[in-house]
Write a protein that binds this DNA or RNA. Structure first.
Length: 466
RNA sequence: GGUGCGGUAGCCAAGUGGUUAGGCACUGGAUUGCAAAUCCAUGAACACCGGUUCGAGUCCGGUCCGCACCUCCA
């Protein structure tokens, strides 16, 4: 079996074949660092994390670039409002972004280029576009890309150029464009930009949005690379424009595959800052949910499906994760008297193949999780009948670690049992031996206050983190 | 108007024409001092109408409903 992914460009599933045969070079559109990222943003970053993890699981190398957009209307406006330099303003949110990624268990990309560090590359790219006749300067000094010059414009979004309705959102202040749909490569300086500007052959100004991704992706990954990702809303205009700029400049194919994730919606509506119905990750964690629970939530629906976010499902996920943790704890206990991993027990023999088969099919996470949960069930059943051998248990733990390279929530973080908890558990055992149930229950309540539970088993009491 | 994505049991969510998806929740039982966990059992679904087929959630046609994008939102 081979890893097949859905390519937005062809609107079909294609086998992933990296251009160089071994390393997948991927560019993932990153955050605009003007505020704390919301849970919808992380849906995209989580999809990209799953993708890079499965690419590696499939045996390929990976080089991932994720950009940080640290100059645009919003960042400039907010930094001026706060009276701090742009870089100072954005740094807060860059730091927050990385903290959030860590909380969600998202693997770091290989490169996180900031737009403001690549302005010379962007200027060079625009110069090339001028030389090749795709760019022109308007009366206000801004530089635009002439989409009429690029024959392939609209391929990704499958635009019907004739049928396009002049959108209500076409900015009323953009004069002097040849075609209303032409987009800015370089924006001429305006007083509202404060001290945010760069010199260029076209005068002071700042880069347009799309050019940043073209310049940084090609600089770090080469003129042609493998996968470009983002949310579906990026298909048009952002990715369409990137293709136009990049391929016009180089004459080579830009990204081989385009992958886009669906929206995260809240109560059936798209979550966005403008609608005001968004939650930042921070808010959710402050409510007492863990990064792992949020990770499970964001990962457990297929990436191209819209995901309806609800706290109710976060609660359900907690129960599902608890089931996984209980299983893992049972494995660890069984593994205690093993030294080397042996053969997998029959009930786990097919798990990896089933998991892989599902994931190979455009990352069918539901099928992959079904393989995991079926194994949990079959394993619990078998362990209820006969104790699991140490070697077998170690083999299953090995499998679990392997699958967790992809999922990132399968193996719980081990938590040492505090001395106080151990003592209480021992005291409770004594009370139980004396059939002092009242004392026993009192101790159990006390343990619960400490965040611990205890399960009584034939092998003795076992403490469990609640 | 153009371009897409959907409508599957109480909720979430897979599904390549033909023997149980899976998760959460619910109910009964086993187990337990009581629990917890686990196991066993029971259910329950394919928006609607036609059609193709021995057989359709799955293919075809039509209808209804929801969501998104159409110039800087992941």
């Amino acid at each position: 079996m081979a890893f097949r992914i859905y390519n937005t460009m062809s609107r079909s599933k294609e086998e992933l074949r990296p251009i160089d045969g071994k390393t997948v070079r991927m560019y993932t559109c990153g955050p605009t660092v003007y505020n704390y990222a919301h849970i919808g943003n992380f849906r995209a970053y989580m999809f990209e994390d799953l993708l890079r993890r499965y690419v590696r699981f499939s045996g390929f190398g990976v080089v991932q670039v994720q950009n940080l957009t640290d100059v645009d209307d919003k960042t400039i406006k907010a930094s001026i409002a706060q009276g701090v330099p742009l870089k100072t303003y954005t740094q807060t949110y860059v730091d927050a972004f990385f903290e959030d990624l860590a909380k969600l268990g998202i693997e770091p990309a290989e490169h996180y280029p900031a737009a403001t560090d690549y302005v010379p590359e962007m200027i060079a790219l625009i110069e090339t576009l001028f030389e090749k006749g795709y760019a022109y300067q308007s009366e206000d000094g801004s530089v635009y890309y002439s989409i009429d010059k690029f024959a392939g414009y609209g391929m990704l979004a499958r635009l019907d150029r004739e049928g396009m309705q002049a959108g209500a959102r076409v900015a009323q202040d953009e004069y002097g464009k040849d075609n209303a749909a032409d987009f800015a490569l370089w924006k001429a300086y305006v007083p509202e930009d404060g001290d945010v500007w760069w010199d260029s052959p076209w005068g002071r100004g700042r880069p347009g949005w799309h050019i940043e991704c073209s310049a940084m992706s090609m600089k770090l990954l080469g003129e042609s690379f493998d996968i470009h990702t983002g949310g579906v809303d990026n298909i048009f205009p952002h990715h369409e424009d990137e293709i136009a700029q990049s391929e016009a400049a180089t004459g080579k194919p830009y990204s081989k595959y385009w992958m886009h994730c669906g929206y995260l919606v809240v109560d059936g509506r798209k979550m966005s800052k403008s609608l005001g119905n968004f939650h930042t990750l921070r808010e959710i964690l402050d409510m007492g949910y863990t990064g792992r629970e949020v990770r499970y939530e964001l990962l457990s629906s297929h990436y191209r499906q819209s995901l309806n976010f609800a706290f109710k499902s976060l609660d359900a996920n907690r129960a599902a994760l608890k089931r996984l943790d209980e299983f893992h704890a049972a494995l660890r206990e069984a593994a205690a008297d093993g030294t080397v991993a042996g053969e997998l027990p029959a009930w786990a023999a097919e798990t990896r193949a089933r998991f892989t088969e599902a994931m190979d099919d455009d990352m069918n996470i539901s099928g992959a999780l079904a393989a995991v949960f079926d194994t949990v069930h079959a394993g619990n059943k078998a362990m209820a009948d006969h104790p699991l051998g140490g070697g077998e248990a170690l083999a299953v733990l090995g499998l679990w670690n392997d699958l967790d390279r992809v999922l990132g929530f399968l193996v719980p973080r081990e938590e040492a049992v505090p001395a106080e908890v151990r003592e209480l558990v021992a005291a409770r055992s004594l009370a139980r031996a004396n059939k002092d149930w009242a004392e026993s229950d009192r101790i159990r309540d006390r343990l619960a206050e400490l965040g611990w539970g205890v399960k009584d088993t034939p092998e003795g009491p076992k403490p469990r983190k609640l």
